[in-house]
Structure formats: structure tokens, C-alpha cells
């Protein structure tokens, strides 16, 4: 149990840049080093964690924890993955406000902001490729983006409507 916690704490601590960056680390730790699951199982896990809501890395942790030690294992892995970020960000949040007003910090962050927007814009195209968007389906992301951007519709509704329409399309129109 302690091993599980330690392993996922380590994974949470050393991944930069979000979920997908975590895969190689999980692979080397969980598959090669600890031999808790095999590579094929990991691939299935990735597919499941990707198609479930929530945080990718936490989802994978929960799944592996559950497989090894049932519910307590899942809890320990979820905690282990989240704890490093939580501690680090909390410490930053506690102090950041005090020096955000500093002139140099302000200039640094004014340079950062456009880069942040670019880093969010870039994966749009990568994700588009992975979602197999074609000429027939390109209107879906465009309409979704417009609804949220121009009409202030909550992304929650967009997700709900998209899932339900996909389901309805498959059940009633395609067949």
C-alpha cells in the first residue's frame, strides 16, 4: 500500500505539462519497474482514462490502485497523484499574491500571458487530428466553440448535448 502511494506520489511530482506527458513515466514505473500491470493492460487503461471525465493521471491511478488493492488501493493512488501538485500550488498561491504587484514580476507575466494563450491554442489542432475530424464533422467543433465563445453557453451543456446527439444519431438515424 505504501509502495502504491510512493509510486504515484513520484509520478505526480515529476510530470510537467499535463496528462499525456505522464504516460512514459507511468510506463517505466508501473510496467517495467514494479510489474504491476503489463503493457497491453496499460494501453487499455489509457483508452479508458481518456474517454472518462476527470483528470487523466488520477483516473489511471485509480484504475491501477483498484486492480491491485480494490477501493482502498484506488483511494491511495488518487491521493498520491494529487498531493504533490496540491502542496506545491498551495505554497505558490500563499506567496504569489504578495509579489504579483512587483514591477518586474508584472512585466514577466505580461510576457507570459500571450504564450499561455498560444499553448492552449496549439493542442486544438492536435486534438482535431486525434478526434478524426473530417469535412462532414468539422462544423461540430466550430459550433461548439462559437456557442461558448460568442454566446456564453456553458461547456457543460455543450458536452451533454454532444454526447446525447452522438448517441441519438447512432441509435436512430444511422440505422
Amino acid at each position: 500500500m505504501w509502495e502504491l502511494f510512493k509510486t504515484f506520489f513520484h509520478i505526480g511530482l515529476f510530470t510537467f505539462g499535463g496528462g499525456y506527458a505522464m504516460i512514459p513515466l507511468i510506463e517505466s514505473k508501473v510496467v517495467d519497474e514494479k510489474r504491476w500491470i503489463d503493457r497491453e493492460m496499460l494501453l487499455d487503461l489509457i483508452a479508458i482514462a481518456q474517454s472518462c471525465p476527470g483528470i487523466f493521471a488520477v483516473n489511471i491511478g485509480i484504475f491501477i490502485g483498484y486492480k491491485l488493492r480494490r477501493t482502498p488501493g484506488a483511494l491511495v493512488c488518487a491521493l498520491g497523484t494529487s498531493l504533490p501538485s496540491f502542496i506545491i500550488i498551495l505554497v505558490i498561491a500563499l506567496f504569489f499574491r504578495h509579489f504579483r504587484e512587483n514591477e518586474f514580476v508584472d512585466r514577466f507575466f505580461r510576457g507570459l500571458r500571450p504564450a499561455v494563450v498560444a499553448l492552449i491554442a496549439a493542442p486544438v489542432f492536435k486534438m482535431g487530428k486525434r478526434a478524426n475530424i473530417t469535412f462532414q464533422s468539422v462544423w461540430i467543433p466550430v459550433v461548439a466553440a462559437l456557442l461558448i465563445w460568442q454566446f456564453g453557453v456553458s461547456p457543460v451543456y455543450v458536452i451533454l448535448i454532444a454526447g446525447l446527439s452522438g448517441y441519438a444519431y447512432g441509435q436512430y438515424i444511422k440505422n
Binding site: R113, A121, V142, A145, L146, W149, P155
Partner: peptide, 27 residues
């Protein structure tokens, strides 16, 4: 089928996030 509808919408979600942040406060 549910995921067939979800996946392209998620791409739109991402685009909206970037577009919403392209404002005077950031640029």
C-alpha cells in the same frame, strides 16, 4: 456513438478557451 459526438465537441471546447483568452487583458 456517444463518444463519436463527444470527441469533436471537446476540440471546440479547447478552441473556445483559447479564443476567450485573446482579449485586451492578456494582449
Amino acid at each position: 456513438h456517444t463518444f463519436m459526438g463527444l470527441r469533436p465537441a471537446v476540440v471546440g471546447l479547447l478552441a473556445a478557451a483559447a479564443l476567450l483568452l485573446m482579449n485586451a487583458e492578456n494582449f
